[in-house]
């Protein structure tokens, strides 16, 4: 298929978690990582977050493909953009290197590393969520999270018609190729190139609008939207594991916030 999801089919502790738990997990890591500027805690967070990969039985190849570029990118930019502002983490600061007008302070280096680590701590949780959650579970999860079911069902419609539209795209592209048009070798000047998507995009959008009307009729005939709520054929079950995971995450979040408020109020500098 043209569009393939990164979802990796499998049976692991993480796969079995309720989608809501996994969403909460991403959210919890976000809050925990953002609450602190302390490398020690962030390192613990990163390790615990990275542990999710083996727990989800994610193939190391996939992890490498995602992590290594991210690592290089974040590290490079964190240092390149923060390390040269000696006072970025407040005063006082200690210059460790000076060459002409370039001043690098210990605090700026630490700050850069901390910021990089903060981002990295969130990253594994987010990727594991995507890799272990089949998109079709999303709409039920959204509905259970009290999001109006009509909005949740948008996700269903999108997933249902993704393969259909991908096929339409192929057919339309072929129909235009048969007229001598190649989208990746557009003719004409700059505007012509910018418009190169239109011979495929216009037919696809118009045909979809036509189809949308047919689908809406079919759904109306089967009573979509007549009540304020609806039931779902598939169920999500909050198991004991879910409660345990959520509790641990909640403790983590509270701990981080308390630490921030009372103990680790500012950037931690090891000296």
């Amino acid at each position: 298929m043209l569009v393939s999801f990164k979802y990796i089919h499998g049976d692991s502790l993480i796969h079995r978690l309720d989608v809501r738990t996994k969403l909460f997990m991403v959210f919890a890591y976000l809050v925990m990582a953002l609450s602190l500027l302390d490398m020690r805690v962030l390192a613990i967070l990163f390790v615990s977050s990275a542990m999710l990969w083996p727990l989800a039985k994610t193939p190391m190849k996939e992890v490498g493909k995602l992590l290594i570029p991210m690592l290089i990118f974040i590290a490079f930019f964190s240092f390149a953009t923060n390390a040269f502002y000696p006072g970025i983490a407040g005063k006082p600061y200690h210059i460790v290197y000076q060459w002409g007008w370039i001043k690098i302070s210990l605090e700026a280096l630490i700050y850069s590393a901390t910021v990089a680590l903060r981002y990295l701590a969130i990253f594994p949780a987010a990727t594991v969520f995507i890799m272990t959650t089949h998109p079709t579970k999303m709409s039920v999860a959204l509905a259970k999270l009290k999001i109006p079911y009509k909005l949740a069902y948008v996700m269903n419609i999108a997933l249902r018609y993704l393969p259909t539209l991908a096929l339409d795209y192929e057919i339309i592209k072929n129909a235009q190729r048969a007229r001598g048009f190649e989208m990746d070798r557009p003719q004409g000047g700059l505007v012509g190139r910018l418009k190169a998507a239109l011979p495929v995009m216009i037919p696809m959008v118009m045909d979809s609008i036509n189809r949308a009307e047919l689908i809406a009729d079919a759904m109306d005939l089967r009573c979509f939207g007549v009540y304020k709520d609806r039931t779902w054929y598939h169920d999500l079950k909050f198991t004991k594991t879910d409660y345990i995971v959520c509790t641990i995450l909640l403790i983590g979040v509270i701990t981080c916030i308390l630490l921030r408020l009372f103990v680790l109020k500012r950037l931690w500098v090891p000296v």
């Binding site: 043209l2 569009v3 109006p148 009509k150 909005l151 069902y153 948008v154 996700m155 269903n156 419609i157 999108a158 997933l159 249902r160 018609y161 993704l162 539209l165 991908a166 795209y169 998507a197 995009m201 696809m204 959008v205 979809s208 609008i209 189809r211 949308a212 009307e213 689908i215 809406a216 759904m219 109306d220 979509f224 939207g225």
Partner: peptide, 20 residues
């Protein structure tokens, strides 16, 4: 009030964006 047609258009729009 979201009409059924709105829901379908949202879904097809999203899927088409992803395909493109």
């Amino acid at each position: 009030r979201l009409s059924t047609l709105d829901v379908v258009l949202m879904g097809l729009g999203a899927a088409m964006y992803a395909v493109f």
